[in-house]
């Protein structure tokens, strides 16, 4: 399968500066494509567009030539940077884990999720433990592509290495396509099969750079 972004352009307001301009890139099943750029180059925005959270102003996101489904389980799933914001603080971990499908014991063991964690509340787990749940809950059989937006940036380096080792293993086993967004080049070199430099790919003019940055954060503030 192939996930393709075709001439994507995006801006947050109708007359604002473009955050993304004419971006074309594709990810094939089994590939782990790293998107590397410093903050302010629209990485997170690209992740949201590729996983269908936002619609581009121009261009298309195609999965094997067809647009992403607007309802039902999306074959392109995203994992966020802040796991504690991505889970409902009022739900217990087993409910969070089983929101979309029932992962089997084998997967839980592989993900390093301990049975005793299932009866806890999100506030009783660390960021690294929560992130394992956030990954496991979107690894359903219908998931074909996984977009990872700085998923280990807030975790300690040991947990970071643990999570990436198992994600690499799973992506190979299931022929999963992954897009890995990170600012950390050494991490990208370790885990990706191909690296794309978004600073070269993104055709926004460099003098608008600070504005892009500001807008991206403005948007994040809304989400919080």
């Amino acid at each position: 399968m192939q996930l393709k972004a075709e001439n994507i352009s995006f801006r947050y307001t109708d007359d604002g500066p473009f955050v993304l301009k004419d971006i074309t890139l594709e990810v094939n099943s089994g590939e782990r494509v790293g998107i590397v750029a410093p903050s302010g180059y629209g990485k997170s925005t690209l992740a949201k567009i590729l996983s269908g959270y936002r619609l581009p102003e121009e261009g298309k996101v195609l999965l094997d030539g067809k647009p992403l489904p607007m309802t039902g389980y999306c074959p392109v799933q995203m994992v966020y940077q802040h796991p504690e914001q991505a889970v409902n603080p009022r739900h217990r971990m087993d409910k969070i884990l089983n929101e979309a499908w029932q992962p089997d014991d084998e997967l839980l063991r592989k993900m390093g999720i301990e049975k005793s964690w299932l009866t806890r509340w999100p506030s009783e787990l660390s960021g690294g433990e929560l992130q394992r749940f956030c990954i496991a809950r979107v690894l359903g059989p219908e998931t074909k592509f996984l977009i990872c937006d700085e998923i280990t940036t807030m975790l300690d380096v040991i947990t970071q290495a643990q999570i990436w080792h198992l994600l690499m293993e799973i992506s190979e086993e299931r022929n999963l396509g992954m897009m890995i967004i990170t600012h950390n080049m050494s991490l990208a070199k370790r885990v990706c099969t191909r690296i794309v430099d978004l600073t070269k790919l993104n055709n926004v003019h460099s003098h608008t750079h600070t504005h892009i940055h500001d807008h991206e954060h403005g948007d994040e503030d809304h989400v919080h």
Partner: peptide, 21 residues
């Protein structure tokens, strides 16, 4: 030592387990 070993620019080799909270 485990911390430094796990850095991607070093060995990228994790140890097992999690931090107690």
């Amino acid at each position: 030592a485990a911390f430094v070993d796990a850095l991607p620019q070093k060995k990228f080799k994790p140890i097992e387990g999690t931090q107690p909270y």
